[in-house]
Structure formats: structure tokens, C-alpha cells
Amino acid sequence: MLNIDNLHATAADTKILKGLNLSIGTGEVHAIMGPNGSGKSTLAHVLAGRDGYEVTDGSVTFLDSELLDMLPEERAWHGIFLGFQYPIEIPGVNNTYLLKAALNARQKFHGEPEIDAAQFLRVIKDKARLMQMEQSFLNRSVNEGFSGGEKKRNEIFQMAVLEPRLAILDETDSGLDIDALKIVAAGINALRSEDRSFLIVTHYQRLLDYIEPDVVHVLAGGQIIKSGDKSLALELEARGYDWVLEETSSA
């Protein structure tokens, strides 16, 4: 589904990604862990098309298209979803309105008719229930006045409504209390399917207790320096990153 080949990216002339390779198959769940400042959010942003990053080398294909040639909205229409590490507040833009406009823009792009209003309302009510969000949140401005945990839940709620092909979740588990973590994990698990893939950035093994990843990667210094199965996350939790860094530098 996603193929990242030798990706180099800079921001403000600082080299951040330095030859990153990563392949995610359809239906797979990949976790990325790594020290602060190693480039995890940068990778997520470059994949979603944020301004301010320059890709200096490498390529990314997504479902057989050149991802890096697309505008952010085109990437969304092709099925990319980014759950933000720091979801922002957008006063004056209604949550439900945003989702409806987003779905309709995607429908239009694919030459499909607008979504049925009643059907849409049913969907968002169901998904809000899944995320244990109060209905009143639906009619509030995007994230305005939401607590940190509510913002993260709202990200997963949006993902559930938009049903992307590839969800990139940047530290969705950070700042969640134990109950909220379970809700978020349940929300993600409910969306796991054969034709949907996940790239989950996290610092903590605990999320991976609920969402079993197929592959765990360590991102450090702008590269994936180690990959393994879910036991790698347990090992990182126990031993930290130093041993991996040493292993690669001596290799």
C-alpha cells in the first residue's frame, strides 16, 4: 500500500529525514517508535503534504500513485488520514460541517454523488457513540475548548467517519488517561480491516497492548534503524533506545 524509498527531507534547511525506507502492506499495522526529535512527526507531515518541508531525495508511492506530487487534500481523497500529535482548535468551523464537506469533496473527486444527509447523520452518531463522545461535541467548533484527551478522541472519531485506507496516527495515545486510551484503542481496532493499514507513532508500549502491531520500527536520526515484531516494543520499553543505537553504529 505504501512504499517509502530513500526519503530525504529538510525543514528550514535542517536535514531531518535522511534516507528513510519503509513499506507497509495492505491491512498491516506498523508502529514507529523512536527518541524525541528523531523525525517521526516530520515523516507523518511529509506523508500528509504539509508545507514547510522540502523533500530533497527519494520517493513515496501510495496505492500505485506518486504521493509526493499530490496536494494535501488529494492525498486525503486517495485515502490518507493524519491524526495530529497536536490537534489545533478551529473556532467557527463546526465539527460536523467539516466532516460533511470533507466527505463530499472526496465523493466529488471520485465522481460520486453527494452523501445522503440522513445517512451521514446516522454514521456520525454511531461513530460518536463508538468513541464515547457526547453528541454535543458534534456541533461544537473543531476542538474548541476540548481537553487534550478529547482532542485525541476527536481525531479518531474523524478517522472513523472518513474511513481512510491508510491512517497515520501521530502519538494519538499521548496525554490520554487509561480509560480514554482504551476507547481510542477500541476505536482503532474497530477500523482494522483487510484493506486498511495503519502507521502508528507512539512512545509507549501500553497502546500496543491493545493494538497488536504487525511490525515495530525504530526511527532514529532520520532513518529506520531497526524493525521487528511486537516483541521489539517490549524490549524497547524495558531497555530504552541506547542499545539499538549502539547496535547500528557498530554495525
Binding site: E73, A76, F81, L82, I90, G92, V93, A105
Partner: peptide
């Protein structure tokens, strides 16, 4: 930041601009 958030959700750039201008007026 708001522009990118909206576009990352699939709102075309021109619509995202209009949404934010309208949002500014709503208060």
C-alpha cells in the same frame, strides 16, 4: 496550521480558505 488541518481532512484549498474566513466572522 488551520489551513493544513482542513486540507489534510480533504477540504480543497479554496474551500478551506472560505471556511476560515467565514469562521472569523461567526463570532
Amino acid at each position: 496550521h488551520a489551513m493544513f488541518y482542513l486540507r489534510a481532512r480533504g477540504i480543497p484549498e479554496a474551500s478551506a480558505r472560505m471556511m476560515l474566513v467565514s469562521a472569523f466572522a461567526q463570532e
